[in-house]
């Protein structure tokens, strides 16, 4: 599981967080009936790894991310960040959602400032806002309101809002899911670039097998609900990756098989 380190081209000191998910079960209460969503999920993510989670629609991938973010406690099992139990949300573990959910009453700059404001760091760290905006290519749009942005720009702003806090684990819940396919291809590369430069650990949920294979150092495949871990596949290829790389194509076939969709290919 230390496979991630050699793949990183520029060896900065890793600030990534080690995540451990141990025997997690999760159930929803649906009209008084328990609805099992996650069953016996266990895996470990090493500091600086980029792990993608694939699975059929509605299998509970997003729920898993909410547990990791600390927005909900698991029904049973343990989640550990650097060995310490996750008991609530923390700015070291930040989430980017499918919907950018920028605060519409704040300009792009003030949206990015949210984390610093919430933690009372505005006085000393204000300069980081412009830096984060520059990092995602929105330097010129600091004063714009969210309704003036395109989908891709809004998602970049959401990314900057997370990155400005120097997260040690970036939790990505289908962050490119609502973007058009061209913007999406571009942003896959950008996200990988950011991850390689900053050194955080990344946990990505996606529906898109190709996206997972192009971006991640490891792919976890979940089964249908209640979700169990059905495969843990390392993707040992250097960046930038090519979509027609035979190794990736073979992995893609294997994952389709695991998801019961081999006949479609």
């Amino acid at each position: 599981m230390v496979a991630a380190a050699p793949l990183r081209r520029d060896p900065e000191p890793v600030v990534g967080l080690a995540l451990e998910v141990a025997g997690v079960d999760h159930r929803f209460d649906l009209h008084g009936e328990p609805l099992p969503v996650l069953e016996q999920i266990s895996f470990r993510v090493e500091p600086g790894e980029f792990v993608a989670v694939l699975g059929p629609s509605g299998c509970g991938k997003s729920t898993l991310l909410r547990l990791v973010a600390g927005l909900e406690p698991p029904t049973t099992g343990r989640l550990l960040a650097d060995g310490a139990a996750i008991v609530g949300p923390d700015p070291s573990r930040l989430m980017v959602f499918q919907d950018p959910t920028l605060f519409p009453w704040r300009t792009v700059r003030d949206n990015v400032a949210l984390g610093l404001e919430a933690r009372g760091l505005m006085r000393g760290e204000r300069h980081r806002i412009q830096k984060a905006l520059g990092l995602v290519g929105l330097g010129a749009f600091a004063g714009a309101y969210p309704h003036q942005l395109s989908g891709g720009m809004a998602q970049r702003a959401a990314l900057a809002r997370a990155l400005v806090n120097d997260p040690r684990l970036l939790i990505l819940d289908e962050p490119l899911g609502k973007l058009d396919s061209l913007t999406r291809l571009g942003m896959q590369g950008e996200l990988v670039g950011l991850w390689r430069r900053a050194g955080f650990t990344a946990l990505l949920v996606t529906h898109d097998i190709e996206e997972a294979l192009v971006m991640a150092t490891r792919v976890l495949v979940l089964g249908p609900r209640p979700a169990r871990l059905v495969a843990d596949l390392p993707v040992e290829r250097a960046y930038p990756r090519h979509r027609d790389d035979p190794h990736l194509v073979a992995l893609r076939h294997r994952i389709l098989e695991l998801l019961g969709l081999a006949a479609t290919w």
């Binding site: 973010a69 600390g70 609530g88 949300p89 989430m95 605060f103 949210l114 919430a118 933690r119 806090n165």
Partner: peptide, 29 residues
């Protein structure tokens, strides 16, 4: 108020006071 706003603010380290004054009230304006 869209509960996702609270999720975002909470992960960013917002206190309950911040959630009321900087999330709930502006969103309700």
């Amino acid at each position: 108020v869209n509960s996702a706003y609270y999720d975002i603010a909470r992960t960013l380290g917002a206190s309950p006071r911040f959630l009321v004054l900087r999330v709930a009230i502006p969103a309700a304006m």
